[in-house]
Amino acid sequence: MKKSAVYWLLLPGFVFLAAFMVIPIVLTIGSTFVQENAFTLDGYLHFFKDPYFLKILLTTLQVSVVTTLVCVVLGFPTAYYISRKAPRRKGILLALAIFPLLTSPVVRSFSWMIILGRKGLINNALVGLGLIDQPLDILYTPAAMMIGLTHLFLPLMIISLVGVLENIDQDLLKAAQSLGASRFTAFRRVVFPLAVPGLVIGAVLVFVGSLTAYTTPALLGGKQRVIATFLYQNAMTLNDWYLASVIAAIMIAITFIVVGVMNRMAKTLNPKG
C-alpha cells in the first residue's frame, strides 16, 4: 500500500471533525478576543471581576473538589474489594458498578429528586421518626449537586481503580508480608503506591466531569448555578452569546489545564517512568 493511502482512510473523519468541531470551537474561542473589530480581553476581565460570576465559578470548583474527594474515599475501598474477588463474582460486581454508568443521567438525577425533596424519602423518614419538625432543604443546594454528581461519577472512579488494582500481582502483597509487613502496612506501602496512576486517571475523570456536568446541576441545583448551567442560561435564555463564548473558552481552558497537570502528576508519581 502506498504511504499516502493511509491519509485517504483518515480524511473523511478528519474533514468531518475539522468542519463541525475544530473550526467552530476555534472560532468560538477566537471570537471572545474580538469586540468591535479590535483585540480585547474585556470579556475575561469582566468575568473575573464580577462577584456573581466568580461565585458561580467558585461553587463549581467547590462542588467538583468535594465530589472528587468523596469518590476517592468511597471508590478506593470498593474497587479494592472488587479486585480481590474471584473472576465470576468480580464480573457480577463490575456489572453492578457499570450499570448506573450506562443509565441515563436524567434518570439518575431524577431519582435523587425523589429522595432529597421536601416531601422526599429522607425528609419523610426524619419527620416520621420525629427527629425534625420541618423538612430540611437538601434539594436545590450545592450538597444535592455533590450527592448527585458523586452518584453519577463514582462508577467511573471504581472501574478506573479496578483496572489498576486487579493488575497488581498478589505475590507482591505476600512478599511484603513475608518481609514483616502487616496486612495494612503491605497495603499502604505496596498496593496504594501502585494504584496511584489509576487513582489519578479516575480523579481527572470525576473532577472534569463534575466541572462540566450539565444535567445533574440543572435538576438538583435549582437556582444554584454552576458554569455549565450558566453557559446554557446565557446562550439560550439570555441570548448573551459573547458571555457564553467566554464561559465556553474558560471551561475548555480549565479542562485542558486539569488534564495536563494530572497527566504530569501521574508521570512523576509513577517512578517506573
Binding site: D169, D171, L172, K174, A175, A176, Q177, S178, L179, G180, A181, S182, R183, R189, V190, P193, L194, N270, P271, K272
Partner: peptide
C-alpha cells in the same frame, strides 16, 4: 503465627519485586 511474624525469607517464582521501589528500597523493605 502470622506470616509477618515468622521471619522466613520467601523467594517467589515471579520474583514479586516491588515495581515502584528501587533495588535498594526493595532490599531495604524488610
Amino acid at each position: 503465627v502470622p506470616v509477618n511474624k515468622r521471619n522466613f525469607g520467601f523467594v517467589f517464582q515471579s520474583y514479586a519485586l516491588f515495581p515502584h521501589l528501587s533495588v535498594y528500597d526493595n532490599v531495604a523493605f524488610g
